[in-house]
Amino acid sequence: MAEKVAVDPQAFKKAVDDRTNARLKMWLEICAHCGLCADTCHFYLSNDRDPKLIPAIKGKKVLEAFKKKDKIDEAFLEELYWTVYGDCTMCRRCTMFCPFGIDIATITSTGRGLCVSQGKVPENLVKTIESYYEYGNQMEVSEEDWIDTLQWMEEELQEELPGATIPIDKKGANLLYTVNAREPKFYPMDISQAAMVFYLAGEDWTMSSKGWDDTNLAMFAGDLKAAGYVSQLVRDAAEELEVKRVAITE
C-alpha cells in the first residue's frame, strides 16, 4: 500500500522537466501503436490477454504524465502509480521485441521516478531506501552486527577448513566480494560457502566493513538520487580498499 500524500503539482512539473531526455521524447513520439509488444508481456498473457495490459498502454500513461506536468490531480497520480507499479515489472522483454526498440522498462522507471516526487512509493520500498541511507544496506544491519556475522562465519568455516579466513578490509586485494544484505540477515552460511570457494581457488579477496550490500532497491523506485547513493557506497569501498575488481553475490 502506498502512503497517502496530497498532490504537489510544482514538484511533479520539476520531476517531469528533470526526467525529460532525448530518448524518452523520441520514444513517446515515434511509437507506431502497432501492438506487437502485446504478446511479449507476461501481465498481458497471464490476464487472459487483457488489452489494457499491453506495454504500449503503460508507455502512454507515462506520456500523459509528461503532457500534464503541473496539471495533475490525485486521481491521475493514482492511475499512474498503479500502472507503473501494478502492471509492469520493468523486465524489458517488450523492449527487446519492439521493432523500434522503444524501452518501455525505462519509461516505466521514469514514471516511478515521477511518483517519487509525490512521495508515492510503496511503503516497504520507502523503508528499504531509508535503511540504505541510515545503515548503508537494505536490511538495517549495523556495522557491528555485520562484522560479528563475518567473524562467526569464519569460525564455522575454520571447523571445516582449518586455515581458511574471511578477510575484512584487506587493502590491495584482487577482489572485493559484496553480498545481498539478506545473506548476513537470514542466510549467513552463504557467506562462509563463498569463502570456501575463494579459499580453495586461492583467490586474493576481501570483504568490506562498509559498502558491502550490492543490492540497489532504490533503483526499483526510479529514485535516481537514492540509487546513485547506494551504488556510490560500493564504489567508495572498492576505491578505499584499492581492490582490482568487485564481485557480486549470486
Binding site: 530518448r23 523520441m26 513520439e29 515515434i30 501503436h33 523492449t95 523500434f100 526498440g101
Partner: peptide, 20 residues
Amino acid sequence: TKLSHFLMFFFSRAITGMEF
C-alpha cells in the same frame, strides 16, 4: 508526427542495441 520514425527508427534502434 510519428511518421518521423522513417529516420528516428535508426536512432532508437541504435540506442537500444547499444543498451542491450
